[in-house]
């Protein structure tokens, strides 16, 4: 199974490896969700969704389906 933001555990940090651009909204990229940037999972709402992240210093929440499209490498 691929490691994505959706598979991270709370508190884990990772580096974004790949972002599949057709599914990911441009807005998310503009907020810093780009390959090479660091992401940390801060909090998960009940039922695993949405996920509260710190991406490259930006604090934001996204839904699990989108998070599952962002491949990462845990550090």
């Amino acid at each position: 199974m691929k490691t994505t933001i959706a598979t991270l555990k709370r508190g884990q940090r990772a580096i974004i490896k790949e972002v599949t651009s057709d599914i990911i909204p441009l807005k998310l990229l503009e907020m810093g969700c780009l390959p090479g940037n660091e992401v940390q999972l801060l909090q998960i709402a009940p039922f695993q969704c949405p996920m509260y992240l710190n991406i490259n210093g930006s604090h934001l929440a996204i839904r699990k389906e989108v998070a599952a499209q962002i491949e990462v490498e845990i550090i």
Binding site: I23, P25, L28, M31, P50, S58, H59, A61, I62, V66
Partner: peptide
């Protein structure tokens, strides 16, 4: 419509 949800969590 595409599922698309991004919300900033400001300080």
């Amino acid at each position: 419509s595409k599922s698309y949800f991004v919300i900033e969590m400001p300080g």
